[in-house]
Computed example of a mutant assay.
Amino acid sequence: MTDLRKALNLDAPVRAIKAGVPVKTLRNISNRLRFGADAPQSDELIWVRARDVTDWYKPDPANGAPRFRRRHSGMVVDSDWDKSRKPFGSQIKLDSIRDHFERNVPWQKTDLFQWMLKQIAEKGRIDGCHTREDLIARYQQLDQIYAEAKQSGTMRPHGSVNQTRGEQGGILVHIARDGTPLRDGGGMHRFAIAYILDLPKVPAQLGVIHADAVASGVLQTLRTGPQPER
C-alpha cells in the first residue's frame, strides 16, 4: 500500500491540505484582484538582511495582535498589529549557534543541543529528530550550510533545497507598515547563520504584510535577491 501511495502520489494532496494550499490559492486570487499583478503571494520568497531584523512580532490577541502562522503567509492585514513587538534579544538557538561558529564550542556542548535532547526525551521528536544521532546529523548539515554561505556570501532559498511549495518552511518574516521585517516562527537556524555572517540578503518566507506596506511598493525591493558578481 505504501508503494502504491508513492506511485500515485496520494500523499501530495494531504500535505497540500495541511499546508493550507487551497486557502492560500484563494488568497492569492483575492490579493491579485485587490492589488493587481504585483500583489503579495502566499509562501512567496522575499530577501532581507538578517541584521535589519531588530524585533520579534509579539502576538497579543487581546490587544489586536493575532497569532499568525505559516498558513497566513501572504495575508494582507490592516490595523495596528505590527506595533506589537519585542526586542530581538538573547535566544537559545542564536546564542548556541554563535557559541559553535564564533567560539568553536562543539554542538554537543551547547545549551541548544542539550535542550533538543531533552525535548526528544519528553516528546519523542523535535524538528524531525528522534534520536541523538539524528541531532548530530542535523547539525552536521548546519555546518555545511554555514560553510557554503560563508564562501558564497549568500544562502540558497529553502524551497529550492527542500523542494517545498515556494519558500514554505523558510525563515518566516512579517512586514510592518513601514517595511520593517519582524521575525516570527521557524527558520531560526538559517536565520542565525545569516545573522552571524551578516549576509546582505537572506531568503525568507513572506508572512503577513501590512496593507500600507503593499501600497508603498516595498515588495519590489523585498523581491530583489542578491546580484550575481560580474
Rank of each mutant, 00 (worst) to 15 (best):
G166S: 01
T180P: 00
A50G: 06
H72M: 03
D134F: 00
T154L: 11
R70S: 08
M116R: 05
R98I: 10
A149D: 06
L182H: 00
Q140A: 15
R132Q: 11
R138E: 06
A12Y: 10
D95V: 01
L10S: 15
R70Y: 07
I193E: 01
Y139S: 06
I196S: 02
D80S: 14
A149I: 07
Q144Y: 10
V161E: 09
R132S: 06
D82K: 04
G185D: 08
Q119M: 10
A50Y: 07
G89A: 10
D198K: 03
E229C: 07
F101S: 13
T164S: 12
G187P: 00
Q220M: 10
N28R: 09
F101N: 12
S84V: 07
S73F: 04
R27V: 09
Q163F: 11
Y146N: 03
T25F: 13
S152A: 13
A215D: 08
Q220R: 15
R34C: 09
M1G: 12
A147F: 08
S152Y: 09
K123M: 06
G124T: 05
A65Y: 09
A192V: 01
A204H: 03
I46P: 03
E44W: 01
R49D: 09
L142C: 11
A147H: 10
Q108M: 13
V208E: 02
P61S: 06
G179A: 01
L45D: 02
I92K: 04
F113D: 00
A176K: 02
R32F: 13
Q140I: 14
E133L: 08
I145S: 05
Q151K: 13
A39D: 03
K6E: 14
Q227R: 12
A37E: 13
F113E: 00
A147L: 14
A211G: 01
V77I: 14
R132L: 01
K86S: 11
G166K: 03
D127T: 09
F88R: 14
R183P: 00
H72Q: 11
Q108R: 15
K24P: 02
H130K: 13
G186N: 10
R183G: 05
Q91R: 12
V202N: 00
P59R: 04
M75A: 11
P181C: 00
V77Y: 07
Q41A: 15
G124S: 04
D78P: 06
R125G: 08
I92F: 07
R98N: 12
P181A: 06
L4V: 15
L112D: 01
Q151R: 12
A213Y: 00
I92M: 11
M116V: 02
D78N: 15
V21I: 15
R69C: 11
K83G: 12
G186R: 04
H174W: 02
P66Q: 10
H158W: 12
S84E: 07
Q91I: 08
L199Y: 04
P226V: 00
V21M: 12
T54G: 07
F35Y: 12
M75T: 08
K150W: 06
D11G: 13
F68V: 07
D99F: 05
G169I: 06
L10V: 15
G74T: 01
D52H: 11
I92H: 01
R15E: 14
R85K: 15
E167N: 05
G153E: 09
Q144V: 13
R177S: 06
P40K: 03
